[in-house]
């Protein structure tokens, strides 16, 4: 049996933060890059305030399983999502967190003030897209493919670029 080069990403947050939408965009961008992609989400958790996660497994070969509890990258926009991930005993290699909404005691590989940036630049409601920009900044997903998917909305494009910039500033 061939060994697969499967990679996995999890996005987490709370209802209302657009996690499912961001996961879908990310998955579509990876698909556009030519990967096999499987994308799932905790459907129906979009009640405001509840933890929401979306996850993606992608590979150059067909996806064996969309189900995994081991992630290469986890990006969370809210403490609650992190708690959910702990509860599920997920493991991960790289953790990226929203600076203000995730407890400072959490040891993250990267912290970004996504909400503060959004507020300052009038991009409230686009935090999920800023997060995608961060993933693009880390080279996880193609910024161009994301831009193509977001084309119709100027604000989204700006949010994406701000995310990319946050990483460049590291």
């Amino acid at each position: 049996m061939a060994r697969h080069d499967e990679k996995s990403i999890l996005l987490g947050g709370i209802g209302g933060q657009g996690i499912v939408y961001a996961t879908t965009l990310l998955a579509k961008a990876l698909f556009a890059e030519g990967y096999y992609v499987a994308q799932l989400q905790s459907y129906g958790a979009e009640v405001r305030g509840g933890a929401v996660i979306g996850w993606i497994v992608y590979s150059t070969q067909p996806i064996v399983s969309p189900f995994t509890d081991v992630f290469d990258t986890v990006l969370v926009l809210h403490q609650k999502a992190l708690e959910e991930i702990e509860k599920k005993k997920f493991t991960y290699t790289r953790l990226i967190v929203e600076n203000d909404l995730v407890s400072s005691t959490i040891e993250a590989d990267y912290r970004y003030p996504i909400h503060r940036v959004a507020k300052k630049l009038g991009l409230e409601g686009n935090e999920n897209i800023i997060a995608l920009g961060i993933l693009a900044g880390h080279g996880i997903v193609s910024r161009e493919e994301l831009r193509k998917l977001l084309e119709s909305n100027k604000k989204n494009i700006r949010a994406l670029e701000e995310g990319v910039k946050l990483v460049a500033r590291d």
């Binding site: 879908t24 998955a27 698909f31 096999y36 992609v37 499987a38 994308q39 799932l40 989400q41 459907y43 067909p62 996806i63 969309p66 189900f67």
Partner: peptide
């Protein structure tokens, strides 16, 4: 099932 129904794949 719901996983397959709402899961997106190629």
């Amino acid at each position: 099932d719901e996983f397959i129904g709402h899961g997106r794949e190629v």
